[in-house]
Nucleic acid binder design. Structure first.
Lengths: 355, 355
DNA sequence: TTGTAGGCGTTATCAA
DNA sequence: TTGATAACGCCTACAA
């Protein structure tokens, strides 16, 4: 049985250590931080006394008030952790951020802004915030954070006043993929879209849902596809996961051959993988009976989708850029929004439609 | 171009708001926190003045010093984020923790304790810490944290003085899997192990590496297998990933048939999936030519591994238990370590050895 | 090299 | 219902 808290008498403070060591608090502080000159002898004595008293070093809470910095960067995800992290792209971006902010002694605080709850965003000791492809549903919370003077960086978000964005040419890349299919001769295509917000359920892409949509990435990718296939429809999913792709795939493919699309534009590789799995279940060959394209360029475990035609986005680099932006804003340096471009990668999941 | 910091004059404080509203700081504080009686009129005035001055609410840094709580729980991973989160088990556990601590207004701070760096563990404003299957390499850092009086909960870690552990019967479950293979008649088996620490490289399981091993989970699972197959060897990987499983699989399987194991005990489902992919590449059928078992019970995208023989561990439940333990320790309540048991799930990847 | 003083922004306690 | 006071634990000019 463990009862860690309270089992010990009140923790000693720096002042207590200083007193016991016969020095002033400021000297003791220097002994720990090394921020000023202290004789070796004094430092040793302070450290020895600290060890004896079981002092664990300066309290980070007090330090962060005094310094005005907590060393914490909030990573805001608009989803549960399991959903958000199911997609390797999010993980890669997170890793990219940590890559840059970590060495600067910043850690990442996970903030999932799901519907309803009072936002931890408002009472966590944050130095800065990174928004992961957040929808406009968060505008209010964002406003409050901004009022605090906390730097905000967004990744693929609708341009927002005072928020620095690390963007992605979703329209251009999606258009490229669509054009690729068009060039191959496909005329009956469908889109399998990421979540569109503000509600979440798998169903057909309708004008209403598009008009009400709050998820920037998804809307932009749809826009790109529609530049080539005006008004193209399909299915809205609840997010980037193979299971969702499979559900959408079944919906689109389990119909008479004459109505079946000859190509599907999935808005993520995970969705594409699911679509391919569904096609396989239904006995349709890819790319013989159906061409499929994805988006992201992640490595997929399913061998049927291993060589997917897609666009590769520089996820880690985007994360790093976000991290650098955070550090620059924190340092009061000027920074500009950036847009990344994804690269088309031809795979083995697209071909001409069967005639 | 964005220059958020410094562009604005010093942020107003609660005291400034109070002054402007003609009330005392304590009253203004109450107006925001709602922790005491304030007349509606006064509250309204304070809030109005705050809005006018652009005051964004009480500073969490000051609040956490004053209250002695930051609302932050550290999640310590001994790996990069991309590696740690590639495994759905870790994500599920994280989600389980957040599930419990979130409603109590706590957020998770990601701490990756990789070799070398000075530990953010020591200067982050943490209320508590959860160790994710951390090896004994962290003992020092843990000691420092403990000295601070911060509650520590570990998930599948070597029993540690003063640390509450949410355990897993790794030995028992591994033994079950091994016994299953033994019952089927397998006598030439190999293990594909998770990282063993302290070094990380893919290579044979040797007595030296086992003796020097620091990763509890991996060692325990090996121990379980060896209860049935004494001294069984195999390959140590660098962690739970299909790519690692595939590498290990090739090493073990790309040999003359007489030396080839008839069954492989992979220490995670992801590793097992990789092993099966490798077998497939080499033209070996599963379970005809090779039986494979995993560990975890996660959903796998690769259809060849979809129906894996494995043990299912209650990952989310373990996370929740860890979260509950954190809250209890924070509240000064006594808590006991718990051990979870995984459940055997027969799949289609095991069968009798070819005679 | 060491000590003194003051404050970072809040909130808990108590008295009015 | 409101206000005065005193910390919370530390750090940083500045003075000695």
């Amino acid at each position: 049985m463990i009862r860690q808290e309270g089992a010990v008498a009140a923790r000693p403070t720096l002042a207590a250590v200083a007193r016991a060591a016969g020095v002033s608090a400021s000297t003791a502080s220097l002994a720990f931080s090394g921020a000023g000159p202290v004789s070796d002898e004094t430092r040793a004595r302070v450290l020895a006394v600290a060890a004896e008293l079981g002092y664990g070093g300066p309290d980070p809470r007090a330090r962060s008030l005094r310094r005005g910095r907590s060393g914490i960067v909030g990573a805001v995800l608009e989803d549960t952790l399991s959903n958000a992290f199911r997609d390797p792209v999010n993980i890669a971006m997170l890793d990219g951020i940590a890559d840059v902010t970590g060495p600067a002694d910043n850690s990442l605080l996970l903030l999932t802004e799901t519907e309803g709850e009072t936002s931890r965003l408002l009472d966590a000791p944050l130095d800065a915030v990174v928004l992961f492809g957040c929808s406009t549903r968060l505008d209010e919370s964002v406003a409050v954070v901004r009022r605090r003077g906390i730097p905000i960086v967004s990744i693929e978000a609708q341009p927002l006043e005072g928020v620095l964005d690390i963007g992605e040419d979703n329209v251009g890349a999606s258009r490229l993929l669509a054009q690729h299919l068009h060039d191959l001769g496909h005329r009956r295509v469908a889109v399998v879209a990421l979540e569109l917000g503000p509600t979440r359920w798998l169903g057909p892409i309708t004008d209403e849902r598009v008009a009400a949509g709050t998820a920037f990435t998804s809307l932009e990718r749809l826009r790109g596809a529609r530049l080539v296939y005006p008004g193209v429809g399909g299915v809205v999913t609840t997010g980037s996961a193979t299971s969702e792709g499979a559900r959408a795939g079944r919906l689109l493919l389990d119909v008479p051959a004459a109505e079946r699309p000859t190509a599907i534009i999935a808005q993520s590789d995970l969705l594409a993988s699911g679509v391919i799995a569904a096609a396989d279940e239904l006995g349709l060959s890819v790319p013989g009976d159906l061409s499929v394209v994805g988006y992201d360029g992640v490595r997929l475990d399913d061998p049927r989708a291993a060589n997917l035609t897609t666009v590769v986005q520089p996820a880690v680099e985007k994360g790093r850029a976000a991290g650098r932006a955070v550090l620059a804003l924190l340092a009061g340096e000027p920074v500009e929004s950036t847009t990344f471009t994804s690269v088309f990668r031809a795979g083995a999941t697209t071909g001409p439609p069967r005639v």
